[in-house]
Design a protein around this nucleic acid. Structure first.
Length: 454
RNA sequence: GACCCUAUCGUCCAGCGGUUAGGACACCGCCCUUUCACGGCGGUGACACGGGUUCGAAUCCCGUUAGGGUCGCCA
């Protein structure tokens, strides 16, 4: 209790006293494993009405980069994991960068030193282990006993470098004490470090938080996921056009489940159901295929407004002149159900907004180079001149009536028309595509194709 | 090597002493259909192995094997 620092008075505005944190070190990109750790902490905070804190562990000056710090902010923001205390937010337990907490560490260091827990070794400072059996009751992994009595197998940890720099184990524990963390939810790679941390809590006279070590995320082949692996960096999902809600949903299901076989879940429902004991203990492999499927499901089901909002950055990057937002939405509405990743959108909509669209050679070959195809196209275009109104229903009716009258098969008209109008063999529903394109442009494209491929 | 964690279809998750071992992704058929998707129906496919405990074990215990993690003056 002598350590209840005056600098950290918790404003009790939250409805529970749960305090959790995500404490990344800004040395690379935001990894899906880190994102999942952040997500579980965030979910637990939201579930309990507690506080979610972001703390940047930038004690390693040589490896920290500003880009990596930005990637953390960008990734968390994109995923919607808003923090209650931390950078840009402030809070009563700041600063939230370890590089700015020198006095705090020094104070605890001196305290440990005065109590005889430290000794110097080659200019560095080590913490003298009490050499006991340390018990951990982990919320996920259960009761574990670590025998630290043998210095050969469990050497004393270093807590300060000769240059005065601080080591992770020490600052991590000090900050979790100072920031009043009630629960530490982190990757299982820290499980074996936890007894050392527990010794530190005890030496500092602090009550340790409850620990929950969550299973690691591996590659499909079981190997450890590294930054180079497909799907490892959160930035990749942003660039490739995943919907954040889909990635969040997928990530929730890696190591946790609602236990009733449901998979596509509303975030609010996940928050309501989420709890630590339901996290399983087995390492999970990252299934990019399933994440991809989940994304397609979300894109399919989301509102046109949301789909437009998410598509816009990708469209604007290409410089497609889509005119009005209404015109764009009309096109997106018929393209949405086919879209699996948002980065496909420009390709799917380009031909709506320019007459200079490309024709697929293979499609042209198949549709126009058959005897009579262009004549049929002309015949249909002539019928369409008189066709009113210009709706998908009437467009379809006219096409089928023409085919029936002249003794042709529907598809003998459908395929050439599709290619003439869009330049390609696959695309949105033909009649809706023609409706959106408008009568004049549709007929013009049909006639222009006849002239071009005659 | 020591210590720790883990072990159900290829992958993710159900199962918590009695089930024809269930769902999802992927894959393969069929249906729907103007293309491609979506959707529907069906199929292939798993309790790592060996001992116990029990009337009965995927479920509990032990061992083996395998995978992962930690043992840094990285975090």
């Amino acid at each position: 209790m002598i350590f209840l620092s005056a600098s950290c008075k918790i404003t009790n505005s939250m409805s529970s006293n749960v305090r959790v944190r995500f404490a990344p070190s800004p040395t690379g990109y935001l990894h899906v494993g880190g994102a999942r750790t952040a997500l579980f902490n965030w979910l637990y905070a939201r579930h309990t009405g507690g506080t979610f804190i972001l703390r940047i562990e930038d004690t390693d000056k040589a490896r920290n980069t500003a880009e990596a710090t930005q990637a953390i902010y960008d990734g968390l923001k994109w995923l919607g994991l808003d923090w209650d205390e931390g950078p840009f937010k402030g809070g009563d337990c700041g600063p939230y960068f370890q590089s700015e907490r020198e006095e705090i560490y020094l104070r605890h260091f001196n305290q440990l030193k005065a109590a005889g827990h430290l000794y110097e070794d080659g200019g560095a400072w080590r913490f003298r282990s009490p050499r006991e059996v340390v018990v951990l009751d982990d919320l996920v992994c259960g009761h574990i006993e670590f025998d630290l009595t043998n210095p050969e197998t469990h050497p004393d940890i270093t807590i300060r470098r000769p240059d005065g720099g601080w080591i992770f184990h020490f600052v991590n524990v000090v900050d979790d004490i100072e920031m009043k963390m009630t629960h530490v939810i982190r990757g299982e790679d820290h499980l074996s470090n936890t007894p050392k941390h527990l010794e530190l809590y005890k030496a500092l006279g602090a009550t340790p938080p409850r620990f929950a070590h969550i299973p690691l995320i591996l590659n499909r082949d079981g190997s450890k996921m590294s930054k180079r692996d497909q799907g490892a960096a959160v930035g990749g999902y942003i660039e490739q056009g995943y919907a954040p809600e889909a990635v969040v949903n997928y990530l929730c299901l890696l190591g946790w489940s609602p236990k009733d076989n449901r998979e596509i879940l509303d975030l609010n429902e996940i928050i309501a159901l989420f709890d630590l004991p339901h996290i399983n203990r087995r390492a999970a492999s990252y299934d990019l295929d399933k994440c991809h499927w989940m994304n397609a499901q979300y894109l399919l089901r989301m509102s046109l407004e949301r789909f437009t909002e998410l598509s816009l950055p990708f469209i604007e990057k290409t410089g497609i002149q889509y005119g009005s937002e209404a015109a764009l939405k009309a096109v997106l509405a018929i393209v949405q159900e086919k879209t699996k990743q948002l980065n496909e959108v420009p390709d799917r909509i380009r031909f709506f907004f320019t007459e200079a669209f490309e024709f697929e050679a293979e499609a042209v070959e198949k549709a126009f180079k058959v005897p009579g195809a262009l004549e049929k196209l002309t015949a249909l275009a002539n019928r369409y001149e008189a066709s009113e109104p210009w709706t998908a229903e009437s467009i379809e009716a006219t096409l089928k009536a023409t085919a029936a009258e002249l003794g042709w098969k529907n598809k003998e008209l459908i395929h050439p028309t599709r290619i003439a109008v869009s330049g390609r063999a696959v695309g949105p529903s033909l009649y809706h595509m023609m409706e959106v394109l408008g009568k004049e442009r549709t007929i013009a494209r049909m006639r222009s194709a006849v002239a071009r491929f005659a």
